[in-house]
Write a protein that binds this DNA or RNA. Structure first.
Length: 629
RNA sequence: GGGCCCAUAGUUCAGCUUGGAUAGAAUGGCUGCCUGCGAAGCAGUUGGUCGAGGGUUCGAGUCCCUCUGGGCCCGCCA
């Protein structure tokens, strides 16, 4: 974590040189140059001053480099040179290396985790899949981004609360209830499927086919929905049972991907709790909602949104619209309304943490989940418009520095080949959108199982001594690594075209590549048969590949902090790949076990520190650092 | 009609927030490297008018405008 110190030194000395040389202070940039010959950091200040100083950038850079050079004693800077108008800096690795490895020794488990959050409370909502079907690859993207974000926030010392919103009173649930109650689908899966798969793949898809032929069924759905919302009837209880069963199966899939949650928010509880009427009062009091008395929205309560048509909140018949469920929930998250919920322990999760669920009345754990200083809602970007209105409304209520933020991401679609597997020819098009209603999607469990099977083959051939249990456990970790990395590594606003075949890759820029580098490093440490020498002569690490590796290791905390600031999980994946590549290069070029005793000791420390940095990176990515694979 | 997002090697993508030095990976194709710390690796090679046009700037893949192509959103549905 010492690259930060080096960078700070550079900034400080440039600043000082500016004032010493009589230049005005200017907002310069310090970044890594494109070529390593230019050094470790580079400053563009020469270009910025050229105009007002009426001197060419080269000349300014030369002057500044001279001025800086006389002050580098006692810093992490080895040299300051000018080239092409830039001021280039080399780091003093004879100081930086020991300092970095020292940091790793001090507290390996939290190496590279900065305190940028300072304990502030952040709430993240993700997953939130309708409880009438199994998760598909689109949901995987949500779960994995959300969980990685949670891990980033945790690593940057935020107090975190992860919410999973369960829409147990919506149309989609009504659909499968109609299927069970009025169309006669058996309550138990026929082919031994998981219950969520059965409900989604069979009941939901087939009931949607039936609606087309039988308009009376659609009427039934309306009735069922009404009963579910009122929450008292036999149908309502039946629906509650079904959603719990589906949700439990969905949670298994999420947990399998190493996600975890703090609280399940049931929509039915929001409805029954009258949270809406409290929020409605708040909107009226703040003059955000008003009663329309003419025009097309005559008789409705509406809110005005910037650059938007008025949005109807309450229909002329007095019932609330969809957005009227989202606004109170968002207001609750920010702590703008009194908390109407009680909480009960729902289930202990794979990581030992307790998952709570909202409940109404009854005995309650004295828990508080809402009132975040920052609230992040992770929903795909189709909801961007609606979410923007919600943000606007909440900021008008006076969120008091608290921030509601919608993090959107693009869809996961199916490649032409994968679509073909569903018997769909998409012609010239590059991809097609999935459809839950039509049954055109790839289930998450299927992806995980397929990856698992592929990894298992590999693990088998490489680890003949493994027991069946070890083989499966390892294959599972590799499968999860592959999919988590795959879903995180590209930008959120890029459409992912999912191809079953391509997603199976375990080579190149993939999760298993990172795991492989880790396993190799651990093998070296094991084979050395010696304990780490904290006093090893680290100044002997002068090989280009050694320096490059130390440099990457020393940057971890900067990367983690930046990932947190910009809510960018992918930058961490990028870093992990760069770090692993630096190690693989070192592995090829620098023999560790064959070195002279003192060099060997130093290199072992380096290998160990690499392991620490990569393991801590993988932890944030939700990937297990495997000893063997 | 209005709004948002995307466009960079054959393919999938970094780089754009904050303009700066010969535009980087992966994958695919071709070619090498295991008697040596794990070849899920490494090295080499092939491959780019950064969608088009204009503008700002000493300097544009990056900022602004227009256009083209692709995707999404815009109900007193949820």
């Amino acid at each position: 974590m010492t690259f930060r110190l080096f960078k700070e030194d550079v900034r400080k000395l440039v600043k000082q040189a500016l004032s010493d040389s009589g230049y005005s202070a200017v907002d310069f940039d310090v970044s890594e140059p494109p070529q390593k010959e230019f050094g470790d950091l580079s400053c563009n200040v020469g270009f910025l001053l050229a105009k007002q100083a009426k001197k060419p950038p080269q000349k300014i850079a030369a002057e500044l480099a001279d001025a800086i050079r006389s002050h580098i004693k006692g810093t992490y800077i080895l040299s300051a040179e000018h080239a092409g108008g830039h001021v280039n800096f080399k780091a003093d690795y004879s100081r930086l290396s020991p300092a970095t490895l020292d940091q790793a020794f001090k507290n390996p488990d939290s190496y590279g985790y900065p305190d940028s959050g300072q304990g502030s409370h952040i709430i993240i909502e993700h997953t939130s899949v309708n409880p009438n079907k199994a998760l598909h690859v689109g949901h995987m993207r949500n779960v994995i981004i959300g969980d990685t974000l949670y891990r980033i926030m945790k690593a940057t010392n935020h107090r975190t609360t992860v919410l999973n919103y369960v829409d147990d009173s919506g149309l989609q649930v009504a659909d499968i209830v109609v299927g069970f109650k009025f169309v006669g689908f058996p309550l138990e899966p026929t082919k031994g499927q998981k219950f969520d798969h059965y409900c989604g793949d069979e009941v939901y898809v087939k009931i949607n086919e039936r609606y087309e032929k039988d308009p009376q069924l659609a009427e039934k759905r309306k009735l069922v929905l009404k009963e579910i919302e009122e929450g008292k009837s036999e149908i309502a209880h039946f629906a509650a049972d079904i959603t719990r069963r589906v949700m439990n199966e969905q949670l298994k899939t999420c947990w399998r991907m190493k996600a975890r949650y703090d609280l399940l928010n049931f929509e039915s509880h929001i409805v029954v709790s009258k949270l809406w009427s409290k929020a409605f009062e708040l909107l009226k009091k703040n003059g955000i909602a008003h009663l329309e008395v003419e025009g097309k929205n005559n008789g409705c309560w509406v809110i005005e949104a910037k650059d938007e048509e008025d949005k109807v909140l309450v229909r002329s018949d007095g019932t609330a619209t969809y957005i009227a469920k989202d606004i109170p929930y968002a207001a609750w998250k920010l702590g703008l309304v009194d908390d109407p919920f009680s909480y009960l322990e729902f289930v202990e999760q794979w990581d030992g943490s307790m998952l709570y669920a909202t409940t109404l009345g009854g005995k309650s754990e004295s828990k508080k989940f809402n009132g975040g200083e920052r609230v992040i809602t992770l929903i795909d970007s189709r909801q961007a418009r609606l979410q923007r209105i919600i943000s606007q409304v909440l900021s008008k209520i006076g969120a008091d520095g608290r921030e509601y933020f919608h993090l959107g991401y693009e869809a996961v679609t199916l490649s032409s080949d994968t679509a073909k597997a569903f018997g769909i020819d998409i012609g010239d098009r590059q991809f097609m959108h999935m459809s839950g209603r039509k049954g055109v999607y790839v289930n998450a469990d299927y992806v995980l199982d397929t990856l698992h099977a592929k990894a298992l083959e590999e693990v088998k051939t490489r680890n003949p001594g493994f027991t069946e249990e070890q083989l499966n456990a390892t294959a599972e970790e590799i499968a999860i690594s592959a999919i988590r990395y795959n879903m995180i590594k590209q930008d959120l606003d890029k459409i992912i075209t999912f191809d079953v075949k391509e997603s199976l890759s375990l080579e190149g820029d993939t999760g298993p590549y990172l795991q492989y580098a880790y396993a190799r490093s651990q093998r070296i440490l094991e084979k050395s048969g010696q304990t780490l020498d904290r006093d090893a002569p680290l100044q002997m690490l002068t090989h280009e590949a050694e320096i490059a590796l130390i440099k990457e290791i020393s940057k971890l905390d900067l990367v983690v902090e930046e990932a947190g600031n910009s809510l960018s999980p992918k930058s961490l994946a990028r870093y992990g790949y760069t770090l692993a590549t630096a190690f693989n290069l070192f592995f090829e070029k620098v023999p560790v076990l064959k070195g002279e005793p003192d060099v060997k000791a130093a290199r072992l420390v380096l290998v160990w520190a690499f392991g620490v940095a990569l393991k801590n990176t993988l932890r944030i990515l939700g990937i297990t650092a495997l000893e063997r694979m």
